[in-house]
Design a protein around this nucleic acid. Structure first.
Lengths: 220, 220
DNA sequence: CAAGAGTCTGATCAATTGATAAAACAATCT
DNA sequence: AGATTGTTTTATCAATTGATCAGACTCTTG
């Protein structure tokens, strides 16, 4: 068949570089996918949350999978941007204070955007095309960089001598979990995981364990 | 209407205290729910994995929700059993070594049964009836006990001075995450998260951060 | 204004969902 | 043997799923 649905025939023209409707859909997708997982989020509810009709999703995106990828891309773009600001200062391999700042920024970002870790967790537990995309495209670079940073910290004696693989999962576990479990945390404890004081306290706690007692530097 | 589907009319007789078919279904439910989330696991695939016809699920369980609860109950029963063996020794509030053993056991259990943390994470990110069940019935008691144990450790100076709420999420994050992300971990690193040496190394790492350098006591 | 490209919606598709009904099978007891 | 109770399956239900199509709406441009 020659005819395809309007859009997908020729690739997006990308005239104004930003499409507000498309962005609203991606924003809704980030929220709903991270809450309900890929299968649990129906295209109807997705569309409703974005305030559009359901078939519009298939106009802006080839498929539900395609929308999911757009959501993941958006989240990682945000994280990369948030961390690069800090990472720029750490390029030199010895900058322990800078590395510490990056870790704090990572935790703060996780609190601001727990959706990212939720979507990673949802796909990390069983192989599949979405995990392929996630790992190959996004997670591995983050892991490589983290491993490198942590390696220099260990070498510098700033952090206990633990294999970087374990440090990676300790940091990506201990940091975001409180915020990934936000609603549960609010019920279980009396803490509000969206409160900036709580976020800073958590970053303090993780850094205290990793780096030992220090003067606390507040991030953002 | 008087007639109900065979089983649900009168409550289960529980004659032999164990029903192999029911257990196979629950086992399949634990695996599939934890992999694919509640909505993502279809009753057809559930039944296929248990090797039975699909309507049999509704014979043994009132609904899909009911089966989910049975799966959660089973997982928490296993954890309680695994931890109680250790916790029994710690009742006395000062037993630091015992508390440490409990934490190691918790990590080992998380490696053996990552499904538990997967199911918790899936429901902890948005309120709903399943989160009600999970938190009220299972998670809160675990949290209370953990908070109490960690409180005594902090008081004894065995662990850095961090509020117990944060310690809870640090432990439940840093401990299980590597195993919850098992398949991803295998791709990302060269470690096999089901390998006992890796599990012990991870427990060592977490304990090193929490308790500082010590002679390592191997658990199980 | 008319034309046409781009954006959006209502109606509808086949496929899959959780659940039910009725009937087949199995086991025990008389 | 026949009857009864408990277990399992085949066939089917209405509802929901992701996706498609044709048409309506909005723009700009001629």
């Amino acid at each position: 068949m020659i005819q395809q649905t309007a859009r997908h025939g020729r690739e997006r023209v990308h005239r104004t570089s930003s499409d507000p409707t498309r962005e609203r859909i991606v924003a809704a997708a980030i929220d709903l996918f991270s809450e309900r997982s890929f299968e649990g989020a129906s295209t109807r509810e997705l569309a409703a949350r974005a305030g559009v009709a359901q078939p519009l999703l298939n106009y802006h995106f080839r498929s539900k999978d395609d929308l999911w990828r757009a959501a993941v891309d958006q989240l990682f773009a945000e994280m990369t941007q948030a961390l690069d600001v800090r990472t720029a200062e750490v390029v030199a391999d010895g900058d322990v204070a800078g590395a510490k700042a990056v870790i704090r920024e990572f935790i703060c970002f996780s609190a601001r955007r727990p959706q990212l870790h939720r979507m990673i967790t949802q796909e990390s537990k069983a192989d599949g095309p979405r995990m392929d995309y996630l790992v190959d495209r996004h997670v591995r670079p983050v892991y490589e960089r983290t491993a490198q940073i942590m390696g220099t910290l260990v070498k510098a004696g700033a952090v206990p001598d633990i294999p970087v693989e374990h440090l990676y999962y300790i940091i990506t576990g201990a940091g975001p979990t409180m915020f990934v479990h936000g609603p549960e945390c609010r019920r279980l404890t009396s803490l509000d995981p969206t409160d900036d004081a709580v976020i800073q306290a958590h970053a303090d706690a993780v850094c205290l364990l990793l780096f030992g007692p220090h003067v606390t530097t507040t991030t953002k």
